[in-house]
Every structure is written in structure tokens, then in C-alpha cells.
Amino acid sequence: MTTATYDNIVEDVISCTNEVFASMIPMEIKSDGSFYQKEDMISTDVISLISFTGEHSGIVAFFGSKDMALKITSKMLGIEVSSIDQDVKDAMGELTNMIGGSLKNKVFETFGAMHLSVPIVIAGAALSISSSSNKNDKQDLTISPGVTCNSQNSWMMTPFSSEGDTFNIGLVVKKND
């Protein structure tokens, strides 16, 4: 079993997300700590994923309701968007891309060089996800002091709220041998 410790990762996720909104999305958001969630407990309308590979591999993801995705897209574009269309999927992909890119730049010294994929966005109703990787390849990672995350099936979720609605930025990380 490989164990790695990453201090301040929650703070990094919060600061990167805040930076993206402060710079490019005129919308007040408020973070509220973090929690771990089993993959099979995730149920949401819009999922945007960006994976990274290198010395470490993993996924940064946006999980949010349809209303939150519409609200964020409307603020990004400066026009009212009322239904899930290609622009909404594109906006959610770009949001995740910017958060993932900022996080990559911030944790570069700890995680080493990594390559980001282009985003994948899925929109529907009550979507869930499941990992397809080999269950014999589990690795426990200590994401912050005292908290252990099983990278096979638990996500570190950082929730953000705005005007009564919420979204989560999820993160899973695995150190490659």
C-alpha cells in the first residue's frame, strides 16, 4: 500500500475555485469545509470531469444541479440561459478545466508534473458514477492530516453555495508506483 500526505489540499481547492469565480464568473460563492463521499452515494444532474496523469493520477470534478449549472453558465456568458444545451456543457467543462488547471499549478511541487485531459461533461437527472478500475489496485491516501481517503471509491468533496443552491468540487488522487 502506498501512502502519501498532502497538506492544505482542501484550502487549495477552495482558493482555486474562488479564484476562478472572482476572475471570470460574477457570482458570489461561499465554501463550507469538505467531506468524503462514497462514489455510489453521488447523485446529481451535471457532472464535469477532468483527469490528470503523471506521478499522481486522479480526477477533479464538478457535481451540481441543473439549476446551478444554468446559473453559472448565465453568469459566465452574461445572458440568461434556461435549458441545458451545448453552451452549458461547454461552460461546465471550462469551469472544471480552469479549477483543475489552477490546482495543478498550485500543487505541482507536491504532486510532480502532470498532464490534464480535456473535460468530459455529462448532463441528465440524478446521475451517478462508478469506478471501473481494478479493485485489487486500491491505494489509501492521506489527503489531509488524520483523514484517510480510499481513492478507489471515495471522493473528497468541497461544497460551495450560492443563493440557496450548492455544488461540489470533487477530487480523487492516487500516487502511481
Binding site: S23, M24, N97, G101, N105, F108
Partner: peptide
């Protein structure tokens, strides 16, 4: 205009012929 913000990437871009560099997100 990219999310790639490391010094190594910026140097690679300029060595390849880019004249300027702006990291996303930007104000």
C-alpha cells in the same frame, strides 16, 4: 491563453514561438 501556468510550460511556449502568455482564469 491557457490553464497551463508552470514556468516550464511558459518557457516551452515561448521557445516554440509564442510572443505572450496569459494564464486562465484571468481578470
Amino acid at each position: 491563453v491557457t490553464t497551463e501556468g508552470s514556468d516550464a510550460k511558459i518557457s516551452e511556449a515561448k521557445d516554440s514561438g509564442a510572443d505572450g502568455y496569459l494564464t486562465k482564469p484571468f481578470t
